[in-house]
């Protein structure tokens, strides 16, 4: 609360996420016993290459632990979450178990510092590593929200330089009067810290100790981290809280005594920082894919993106006439086709072109609303918009039937006249037979005699013949 009043956002550093390297998500743990001011101090340094997928802030004893003011050993919290490496995390109120400061755990906002200015370390949704001081507004940012965030006390290293003095000015509480904060910075003790190096790898630091007897102060820790290429780091809870767990097993020497003071026992703490196997972001791939080694493999043909939360129906994107869904383009009313690029065929309208036009005389209708374009028969039948089939049908209906009728009438007339003439002809013939007249036709094949007879009797044809 000694912070100078500044306009705008609070001072912090954002570090772009490292380029993803397949298989580089595992934690690399180094153990050290180093000399600080002539004292041998043991500890661990852990680097994580893909922090967005392998680093989590955990509530004590699992989700809901802060709300329930739980305290749990790092081992218990880490084991349930499957942590490969785990350390104690943020500060907490020992009497009540309250988590202090900001806590965002796997994209869940758990605890809010209420604008209190202490050093923060977090990872945003896009993998950006953020270190420093954050306003309330920045903590609650929804455009690129924090997926992991926790609070420490004292910004140890800022952009490759020790930043303790500036932190004391920002985070102190009447330092000159009480001396409490100054002692906190300078006393030797067990310490933990979190930060990142120049490669964008997350770095966890832990050093064993006991307040005022063993361990290191914040200056020594900052110098050690600088030698390890750390560019931004904050100090986390220390003293009896400092705990390091490797593969579910306590791997440090806690400074709190057990009830039997012969032994040392790990403290039940609040939040935990955890390094685990790569997880997808979000872990369930938004419900539209499968997480395979930290990468979402999207299901279906249209879900895309690292989180399988983007629908992609191809370059045409439904031709601006539809909505891309997980089953493909859902076309607007009046449009059809896999890309919604085709208008409804004439005679059909509506969503999916499923509704037939209900217009008189085959008039076309609006493909979107179904409103009839024209109601006059003449316009519809000869309108150029009418389909060829419809035009053919109308032509067939009028001309062909007329021609067919005329042809049939003509044939009928011919048939009638032929029958009448045949009838009249046969009647005349019969009448001639009834009159009793005979007609004789002389045979012509009579050895040529006929010619001689005809010459002798040319006047009467009946005389040469006798009954």
């Amino acid at each position: 609360d000694c912070a100078r009043v500044r306009a705008g956002s609070r001072e912090h550093e954002s570090w772009a996420p490292p380029l993803a390297t397949p298989g580089a998500g595992r934690a690399a743990v180094r153990t050290f016993v180093s000399h600080f001011g002539g004292r041998a101090v043991a500890g661990h340094l852990t680097r994580v290459a893909d922090p967005l997928r392998t680093f989590s802030v955990l509530e004590p004893g699992g989700p809901g632990g802060c709300a329930q003011r739980r305290r749990a050993t790092v081992e218990n919290t880490a084991r349930a979450a499957g942590c490969l490496v785990a350390q104690n995390g943020g500060f907490f109120r020992m009497s009540t178990g309250d988590c202090l400061g900001n806590v965002v755990s796997d994209a869940r906002r758990v605890s809010d510092a209420g604008g209190l200015q202490n050093a923060q370390f977090g990872i945003r949704r896009d993998g950006t590593l953020v270190t420093g001081y954050l306003s309330e507004e920045e903590v609650l940012d929804s455009e690129n929200p924090f997926v992991q965030l926790l609070s420490g006390v004292v910004w140890l290293i800022r952009n490759g330089s020790v930043y303790i003095n500036e932190s004391q000015a920002t985070e102190c509480d009447e330092t000159q009067e009480t001396g409490s904060f100054s002692k906190f910075v300078n006393v030797m003790s067990a310490r933990t810290a979190v930060g990142h190096d120049r490669k964008g790898q997350l770095v966890l630091f832990h050093a064993d100790g006991q307040t005022e007897q063993r361990g290191i102060n914040l200056w020594e820790m900052a110098e050690f981290l600088l030698q390890q290429d750390v560019v931004n780091a904050i100090n986390l809870d220390g003293g009896g809280s400092a705990t390091f767990v490797l593969n579910g097993t306590l791997a440090s020497y806690p400074s709190d005594h057990c009830q039997d003071s012969m032994w040392r026992c790990p403290r039940h703490v609040s939040t935990v920082v955890c390094v685990h196997e790569p997880r997808c972001q979000p872990p369930d791939c938004s419900g539209h894919g499968t997480c395979v080694e930290g990468r979402c493999e999207c299901s279906g043909s249209f879900w895309r993106g690292a989180a399988c939360n983007e629908l992609d129906c191809g370059s045409s994107n439904c031709s601006r006439h539809g909505l891309c869904t997980e089953t493909g383009c859902r076309c607007d009313s009046g449009w059809t086709g896999s890309n919604c690029s085709e208008e409804c065929p004439l005679g059909w309208y509506g969503p999916g072109c499923q509704r037939p036009c209900r217009c008189e005389h085959q008039c076309p209708c609006d493909p979107q609303t179904g409103d009839c374009i024209s109601s006059q028969v003449k316009q519809c039948l000869w309108a150029p918009e009418v389909t060829p089939r419809a035009a053919e049908l109308s032509f067939f209906t009028r001309t062909t039937w007329l021609a067919l009728t005329l042809a049939l009438v003509f044939l009928l007339l011919i048939s009638i006249s032929a029958n009448v003439s045949l009838l009249l002809g046969s009647r005349g013939e019969r009448n001639r037979h009834l009159d009793g007249d005979y007609v004789y036709h002389p045979l012509q094949e009579m050895n040529g005699d006929l010619l001689a007879i005809e010459k002798e009797q040319p006047g009467d044809v009946r005389e040469p013949f006798k009954d």
Partner: peptide, 24 residues
């Protein structure tokens, strides 16, 4: 192993217990 209750006796506090910092 090492899972007994601790005495919480190695306290390393940045601020005095009695003080409550004002949020801004």
């Amino acid at each position: 192993l090492g899972s007994g209750a601790s005495r919480d006796d190695d306290l390393l506090l940045p601020y005095p217990r009695a003080r409550t910092r004002q949020a801004r």
